[in-house]
Amino acid sequence: MKLESMNKQVTEEIQKVVEKYAGRREKLLQILEEINDVYGYLNEYVMKEVAKSLCIATSEVYGVATFYSFLNTTPKGKYIIRLCQTISCDLAGKKQIANALRNELGIEFGQTTSDGKFSLEFTNCIGMCNQGPAMLINDEVYYNLDPEKAVEIVKKYQ
């Protein structure tokens, strides 16, 4: 869902989420996670609105939104591919997987495909070290990858 030029709906959505958490300041991370789930990212307008409804400074919301790697502050692909770059997956051949994904999607790590479908990112250990290389696509985990298998999996999302 696009965030721009639909401020009224966005405001209503934010209000709904904030109300669900009874406007509790300590629920900020949960609130941002839910809004991030709906729109894929958090823009300045969202941060201002969340700050207003919780009666805190926008900078505080911004500080939280930028701290966590699973919260986005720029638009991302519908599917975020997170390939583990940490040591056990590295030993198991993450580089080949990275190369295969790059070639297949025609983008570099840190980029999003022009159709807005995929973002390609590295992430740190995702707890699949005994079955590396491993990656997450949104909330799904894939492991024991080889280049062909990784590409096949990504294709399923196309």
């Binding site: 701290f67 966590y68 699973f70």
Partner: peptide, 25 residues
């Protein structure tokens, strides 16, 4: 259940508490 948001340091117990309170970890 409280979901983290991708930050290794939040495993450190006081960073975890900050995160639980909706702050930077």
């Amino acid at each position: 259940i409280h979901l983290g948001a991708g930050a290794y340091v939040c495993g450190e117990e006081t960073a975890l508490l900050e995160s639980l309170e909706g702050k930077r970890g």
